[in-house]
């Protein structure tokens, strides 16, 4: 968090530098989302781990970049043609070369350990409390609830006016949306009906391709109630930028009420046969 603050400060400084008196823009970022420089606020353990691992990597990135920068500046001052008219004749130094081969290897090993831990944490799917299927289409998402008689519905993007009326951000609101209970492990089964799409909710740390003819799995366990927004993350044609993903995380009671409502409301919707068969397959460990 403190790192985010530092970044925000740097950004405000940059903006002031770039725009001088253009107060409207600088004002805009204070109001809109000061944390838009970094990741979105994490809502799952996985995303928290991604953010903290990334923060570590970021420190390493900044340290290496600054090191290279300061060495370059030192060289410019010390070894420019005026300061050092006679160049040295050195062409190699085995010890030095060994050091700058070994040192990066050590740094990489230090990175690799938490990297693999994070990868196996995110990628191995725990025992799920419920399963939801998302199917990407050109250009909307369909959702199916196999745990509840396979009711299904489509979620299509709202126009700018509809989104404003419904209180959703522009380009991120959909007419219907997926609802899940808070603090439950949700197993997502993702596929597509036409071309490849990708289902992503940044705050959950989830992004997985929806590939036609292939069932992909991922999971999340949202810790806070609220509305979460994501966008299709694989180029899928003309309206790739216009098939947002909305997930509402609610309490257990509200979820049960929603399920009761949805079973009736969406009972008449057709469920895609292909994916119904797929839902009977056992979960992959």
């Amino acid at each position: 968090m403190s790192l985010n603050k530092i970044l925000s400060t740097v950004a405000v400084f940059l903006v002031t530098l770039l725009f001088g008196g253009a107060a409207a823009l600088a004002d805009g970022i204070y109001k809109a989302k000061p944390d838009q420089l970094g990741f979105m606020e994490p809502a799952t353990e996985v995303m928290r781990d991604i953010v903290s691992f990334h923060n570590g990597l970021l420190i390493m990135c900044i340290a290496i970049t600054l090191f290279v920068m300061f060495v370059m500046i030192y060289i410019f001052i010390k070894f420019n043609a005026k300061a050092n008219p006679i160049p040295s004749k050195t062409t190699h130094h085995t010890g030095l070369e060994v050091v700058w081969t070994i040192l990066p290897i050590v740094i990489l090993l230090i990175i690799a350990v938490p990297s693999f831990r994070l990868l196996y944490l995110t990628d191995v799917i725990p025992e799920a409390d419920l399963t939801v299927k998302a199917i990407g289409h050109q250009w909307y998402w369909s959702y199916e609830y196999p745990d509840h008689d396979d009711f299904s519905f489509d979620a299509t993007m709202l126009s700018d006016e509809e989104a404003a009326a419904a209180g959703h951000p522009r380009l991120l609101g959909t007419d219907t949306h997926m609802v899940v209970p808070v603090n439950k492990t949700v197993r997502m089964i993702i596929t597509a009906g036409d071309v490849i799409h990708a289902w992503a909710i940044p705050a959950f740390g989830v992004k997985i391709d929806a590939v036609p003819g292939k069932l992909n799995e991922t999971w999340f366990k949202a810790e806070r109630e609220g509305m979460y927004y994501g966008q299709c993350s694989e180029l899928c044609g003309k309206d790739h930028g216009f098939m947002p993903i909305m997930v509402e995380v609610v309490s257990e009671e509200k979820y049960n009420a929603w399920i009761a409502m949805a079973r009736e409301e969406y009972a008449t919707n057709e469920t895609d046969n292909l994916t119904r068969v797929a839902s009977t397959l056992p979960a992959q460990q």
Binding site: M47, L57, L108, S115, L118, T122, P202, K207, S233
Partner: peptide, 14 residues
Amino acid sequence: VVLANAGVDTAMHD
């Protein structure tokens, strides 16, 4: 190097 890590890349991919 950041993107090389599959775990973090989930958040940055595409």
